[in-house]
Nucleic acid binder design. Structure first.
Length: 386
DNA sequence: AATGCGGGGAG
DNA sequence: CTCCCAGCATT
């Protein structure tokens, strides 16, 4: 299993970067790729740029209508530059990421004032314009002028992660850097066919990610012939399409804590019935105490436990017997357990009520208890801590 | 290096 | 419900 360091190695040996990578993608695109999207079949950098901005973090299906409407109303960069901010924002409304629209407007004005109204096709120039980053600059340059410059969007990251077996979330800088390195290394060869190949390759590597090397069930699993890269794709060979690309690490789930009472009367322990709604609804658990000191103070808690246990009998001793953590889907619960030994019965022996009962430690299977409570009870049954 | 930005679709 | 989508700008 490749270590994390493998994902960021700088090794670009030919063995892992097939010389015909781009050629395979190009050939596949011309037969199986998408050819009829509204921003294809043009070399107009304005239309290509507009589509690329709209497509940032936005799916193709959502963009199509917005693109048609926008072009219908503002068909040239000059028209966009002259339009009011209100009109631009109205055309964008509903697409999200509205800074894209503000930058779009600023960019059009900059093209008019700084580039004589001629949209640049040099990636190094494009990337200086508002809202155009490295990948968008490369896409505009490739589609409008066949410039040999790599894109790296979500589709490409997925294809690369799988084909090269790159572990680690692509949002991590080192992983992304590695992918940029590869994106440059696999580009179509320089030469007479470069411009047309760049158009097909740039479109193809995105089409591949969108239609074949999809996130859910990549088509290669059903039919290897559906992907031109299947024959030496690391993820396909090693059965890793389900784990690559590495998903974004989940946010740390919050931790809550509680104190549970192990109220002992000889071999018996007191259980409390949970309400039907909420966590562990309807299960028998242990009586709990509010935790009102931060940080937790064991001696205070033991004193409070002694006081609390007067409801259940005559308490003699209270001792922390341990703690354990139980992980739920949306939070982590730290459970501290305090054993309180009681003797005799009081007038308020609430165990006679419906929500409390005594249970023999020799008969744990008699009731349904949450897994962590079961662990506490089993430890009690064996007489020790846990 | 990590976050905010956003509405929508897929699983 | 979570994750992701033809990313970029800002901190």
């Amino acid at each position: 299993m490749p270590a994390a360091s493998a994902a960021v190695s700088s090794d670009l040996s030919p063995a892992v970067v097939p010389a015909d990578f781009a050629a395979r993608v190009v050939g596949w695109q011309r037969v199986h790729g998408r050819h009829d999207l509204p921003w294809q079949n043009t070399r107009d950098p304005y239309r290509i740029w507009l589509s690329e901005i709209m497509l940032q973090q936005t799916q193709v299906s959502a963009v199509i209508e917005y693109f048609q409407r926008f072009i219908g109303r503002l068909p040239t960069v000059a028209a966009l530059a002259e339009a009011s901010a209100d009109e631009v924002m109205a055309l964008w409304a509903g697409l999200g990421y509205y800074s894209r629209a503000r930058n779009l407007h600023r960019c059009a004005k900059a093209v008019m004032s700084e580039h004589g109204g001629v949209f640049p096709t040099d990636p190094e120039v494009l990337v200086t314009l508002p809202g155009i980053g490295r990948s968008t600059a490369a896409a505009v340059a490739a589609f409008s002028a066949g410039v040999r410059s790599p894109i790296l969007d979500g589709n490409v990251k997925r294809v690369f992660a799988r084909f090269f077996g790159i572990h680690g979330h692509p949002g991590v800088k080192a992983v992304e850097n590695r992918m940029w390195q590869l994106a440059d290394a696999v580009l179509p060869a320089k030469g007479p066919a470069q411009a047309e190949d760049m158009v097909s390759y740039t479109q193809g590597v995105m089409d591949l990610g969108a239609t074949v090397c999809s996130r859910g069930k990549p088509a290669c699993l059903a039919a290897a012939a559906s992907c031109p890269l299947a024959s030496d794709c690391v993820a396909r060979r090693e059965g890793l399409t389900g784990v690559l690309p590495t998903p974004k690490p989940r946010a740390a789930i919050p931790e809550r804590s509680t104190v549970m009472l192990l109220v002992r009367r000889g071999r018996e322990v007191l259980l409390a019935l949970r309400p039907d709604s909420g966590i562990w609804g309807g299960l028998w658990s242990l009586p709990e105490m509010p935790v009102d000191t931060v940080p937790f103070d064991a001696e205070l808690a033991e004193d409070a436990a002694l006081e609390r246990a007067r409801e259940f009998g005559n308490p003699s001793t209270a001792n922390m017997v341990g703690e354990l953590t139980h992980v739920f889907t949306h939070f982590r619960l730290l459970i501290r357990a305090i054993r309180v030994d009681v003797a005799g019965l009081t007038a308020r022996d609430a165990a006679n009520g419906p929500a409390l009962r005594w249970l023999s430690l020799d008969d744990l299977d008699a009731v349904g208890t949450p897994a962590p409570v079961r662990k506490l009870l089993e430890a009690q049954a064996q007489g020790g801590l846990f």
